[in-house]
Design a protein around this nucleic acid. Structure first.
Lengths: 243, 243
DNA sequence: CCAAAAGTGTTGCCTTTACACCCATGT
DNA sequence: ACATGGGTGTAAAGGCAACACTTTTGG
């Protein structure tokens, strides 16, 4: 057996062949959280053989854009929100994954605040889109169920190490809301006192000196996350954000 | 501003356009470890304007293969080794990243045992390939330096959580070799006694009752990693592999 | 017997866990 | 006054970090 030293994309190839060009799509797993559950924004698929199923929100990569730009474009078109958190998940390249022919997809996941979304979206024609509770998603068009599972696994890993969860929470939140959020996303139970101690010890929550209003119980203190301080600490290397 | 409900890859699109097809390459960051340093297998690039620089090992995605298959093919062609550890890193899609035109690349990283590689490769024509110590890599063709950095970051994260490091070590190793490996890859110092205690407590090392030979000091005990037991423990959920 | 690297235990500290009662508000 | 959920402290256990001397081999 010999080493293959024939033409190669990184060394000698003189031109690109049309036969080895592929359609590329970018699919976004858009996560939202609404006090009760972790949800994913899905749309109706009417492409045979997947009529009636839900699919992720995606589009073909266009000629002069990067995949990050494509993901941003898709998100902005569909949610009317900008500056969303965005992270690559994986490439899915089974040759038969798409009925129209070979379409290789790159999945991203994104986190949005459902409230912001609802505010933006209320007037727009948007019947196609629906928030579906992650736990109830068991069938999607294409290979999108696999993509959602992979994206969720990535989210679970990342949310413990990086304060991305705050993108899904209201700007002002109580510690109990925050705890519920982590319990839901990580699918674990947390001790209230221990959770509070840990979060306060991080020193990254701003005490807003505000309280809940019109609740039939002792109103909770509201906090916001100190992104500035987080950046500073991260740069100095003093930080261990770890839920 | 309205929601864009025009044709979409996941819902209504009727056919794929030639103008939005792209060449896709798969580039492999092949890591090896040889008792002294973490290295990457690189090849010479002679494509203008990168003549004289080193590049990753990659190739164009072919018509009927998945990206995983492409990565395997590339690795097997170049290293003559099969069953290598392989993990996706990221997609790089800057429209101007490749001088031949638009080539979108998907990077993988792979871990190989340099000894096995040397054994396979010794007779073959292989002047193009070279192991380069990671720490000395500061300039590569294309955007390959960025790719190597991203791959290394992924490796550092994964090697602490999953026992992938053993792919880079000899089948029989001493605890000190193992410690040196982690110190090198993670770029940290570890206490010898604490490291040993931790590893032994995992219960995943097989004591081979063998010793180093012909060393001018007390010979070290040799171990191998118990992959079977690891799988079992992982399936039962009893495991916390965490260096 | 010397050099060189392997091997081994103990202690203090910090982090994590477990756990139960009082507080503020609306009705 | 009661129902509801918010807020608080302490003790025990376990994990982690720091640290120095003895052992085995070849030369």
């Amino acid at each position: 057996m010999a080493i293959n030293n024939t033409e190669n994309i990184n060394t000698w190839l003189s031109h690109l062949h049309e036969e080895t060009k592929f359609s590329i799509s970018v699919d976004c797993v858009i996560f939202g959280y609404d006090e009760a559950a972790l949800k994913v924004l899905l749309m109706d698929c009417n492409m045979p053989p997947y009529e009636g199923k839900k699919s992720l929100i995606g589009d073909l990569l266009q000629k002069q854009e990067t995949t990050d730009e494509a993901a941003k474009r898709i998100l902005e078109n569909r949610t009317l929100l900008t500056d969303l958190y965005l992270e690559q998940v994986n490439v899915y390249s089974n040759p038969f994954r798409h009925p129209l022919g070979r379409v290789i997809t790159l999945a991203y996941y994104s986190l949005i605040n459902i409230e912001d979304y609802e505010n933006q979206i209320v007037d727009a024609e948007n019947k196609q889109l629906e928030w579906k509770t992650l736990a109830t998603i068991d069938d999607l068009a294409f290979d999108h169920l696999e993509i959602v599972k992979d994206a969720y696994a990535r989210l679970q890993r990342t949310v413990r190490e990086v304060p991305i969860g705050f993108s899904m929470l209201p700007k002002k939140f109580s510690l109990i809301q925050l705890q519920n959020f982590y319990e839901t996303v990580l699918d674990i139970e947390l001790d209230r006192r221990n959770f509070r101690r840990k979060l306060m010890a991080l020193g990254l929550l701003i005490d807003l000196k505000e309280f809940q209003d019109n609740v039939a119980h002792r109103p909770a203190k509201l906090y916001s996350f100190d992104f500035e301080k987080y950046k500073q600490k991260k740069n100095i290397g003093t930080l261990n954000f770890e839920i």
